[in-house]
Design a protein around this nucleic acid. Sequence first.
DNA 1: GGCGGCATGTAAGTTGTTACATGATTAA
DNA 2: TTAATCATGTAACAACTTACATGCCGCC
Lengths: 191, 191
Amino acid sequence: MKTATNRTRYLILGLLSEQPMTGYEIKKIVDIRFSYFWSESYGQIYPELKKLESQEVITSLGAVSASGRDSKKYQITQKGLDELSEWLQMPVEKEVVRYELLLKLYFSNHIACDVMLKHIQAFQTNHRQQQALFEEFKKQLEASSHTGNNHQQALMVLSFGRKVWKAYDEWCEEMIHLLDENKKAKGDQHE
Amino acid sequence: MKTATNRTRYLILGLLSEQPMTGYEIKKIVDIRFSYFWSESYGQIYPELKKLESQEVITSLGAVSASGRDSKKYQITQKGLDELSEWLQMPVEKEVVRYELLLKLYFSNHIACDVMLKHIQAFQTNHRQQQALFEEFKKQLEASSHTGNNHQQALMVLSFGRKVWKAYDEWCEEMIHLLDENKKAKGDQHE
DNA sequence: GGCGGCATGTAAGTTGTTACATGATTAA
DNA sequence: TTAATCATGTAACAACTTACATGCCGCC
């Protein structure tokens, strides 16, 4: 039986439901504004756009953008909007997470404390950079007052990121503290 | 250039570094104890076991388990242990998360509040079931006093899950509250 | 002139899931 | 006897990444 997942499809339909866009713009939005909860590569986006066009859920708005450059904007059709809201109503598929950091941590009795400490610090640094972006996005959203669109929804998604990233950060702090104490304890034994 | 990821490989090596196991046992451990931070399918485990054996990082300990059933226990070799700790020391690959719930939430201006409410409630229920398991695991770990192995590491990984799942739960509570208010506000307009 | 950003696309490979096939043992 | 669990495995497919190819535009 086919499992009707293909989330790339619905990401595209979702973004085009806001405004016409090119594949390149879709990628940029995902990379910048969605990066903390989604990812796509060109290798998925472009072929999917073609497929969607052939199925008439989106249509191509010829070429030409602001400058004279090549660019194909796509627009969603009614059929596409219908399919989008159908998908939105279906139960959420069980999500699969894979934290390589935790896998390494679980088996880290094989390596020095220091190495694990560095992994955790790197994780913390990465996520702190993202945390700064959250605050920026939030300001932007609160400043833009054009309600009626998905303004509130965007804030809800953002709030997830802020909460979860804060939990990451607190955990990192605790673990760094713990590993530091371990190190000291081991150091003491040698005195 | 080849990207030396293949995390299934290291999951197997990691688990076999604790004790000899069958493919079936590996799958069970991942499904039960690792499910909140990892997942594997038989379609990955069995072929990888074969590959690992041919590369002499693990060896097969013939057949026969407790009963007279067919079963192949595998044991890690020194070469395997070396490769494991080499991998453990390498920086953690950038993790890719994909929260379908958040994608749907982001585009949920196309559907009724009620539907989204149900999605969030389902998410909360799923994660609350996992939260109950955390407490059980924690008790088990704190009861088993055979230190020297990866006891502390397991507790650290567990602590990640508890913290992050708590953040999930709090977020769900807030969102459910918010969506309920939305519903009421809309209801009032009709009176 | 060269670099970075805009823009589209594909081929090859890897990774991962699902469904199926098989069969023994155990417990109800 | 029949369902569940133990146990191994594979084939087909789906999903996804990476690296590459191409070329224009605008700026320094």
